[in-house]
């Protein structure tokens, strides 16, 4: 097997794409968390809550009921926020002289790093020791908090959930 085909087998990617993809994955994960929060809010708007009780006084035993939707009772779904993340990858580094064309595109020197994460499959296939492989650790932090989302939630709460009323 030629060296090049091993590199291809390992699905090597340039380092910049790896960073880009990791960051975008974090964004996508946060977006999913936000969407699930909104879906949770919508569910709670449609979830009726009713509390029955007897009002006891000196002369009567009056039946009372408090009702509204779940939001009105202050029940909110949990908003998960990614505060920071550390991405650690064991990787194989391969190096190639880039072709003239790609050098021109990137306007830099004639080398390119290609990296690929090492998994069990390749570890056994190529007798590659994961423990001794190179690794990259990326610390990721959010910036800035999703304010527009929070404003939208406030609006939904105001418009759809009147305070509980006693009947």
């Amino acid at each position: 097997m030629s060296a090049l085909s091993i590199g291809t087998e390992l699905a090597s990617v340039p380092f910049d794409q790896m960073i880009r993809n990791l960051l975008l994955a974090m964004v996508a994960a946060q977006n999913d968390a936000n969407s699930s929060f909104i879906a949770g809010v919508e569910d709670l708007v449609d979830t009726p809550v009713s509390l029955k009780y007897k009002k006891t006084s000196d002369n009567s035993n009056e039946e009372k009921e408090l009702s509204g939707n779940a939001l009105a009772f202050g029940i909110l779904p949990t908003l998960l926020q990614i505060q920071s993340g550390t991405i650690q990858i064991k990787m194989v580094i391969t190096m190639q002289r880039t072709t003239e064309a790609s050098v021109n595109v990137k306007a830099k020197g004639g080398w390119a790093f290609f990296s690929a994460s090492v998994d069990a499959k390749y570890s056994s296939k190529y007798s590659y020791s994961v423990e001794a492989s190179s690794f990259i650790e990326i610390k990721v932090a959010p910036a800035p908090p999703p304010e527009p989302l929070m404003k939208a939630i406030d609006k939904i709460v105001q418009d759809t959930a009147p305070p509980p009323e006693s009947t």
Binding site: F15, L23, F113, A141
Partner: peptide
């Protein structure tokens, strides 16, 4: 270079998102 490039690309790609991450 690659780290700068990766961060730039991610920033560009997520500029319309309510949240962005940096490294």
């Amino acid at each position: 270079y690659e780290a700068n490039e990766g961060l730039d690309q991610a920033t560009q790609a997520s500029k319309d998102q309510p949240v962005a991450f940096t490294i």
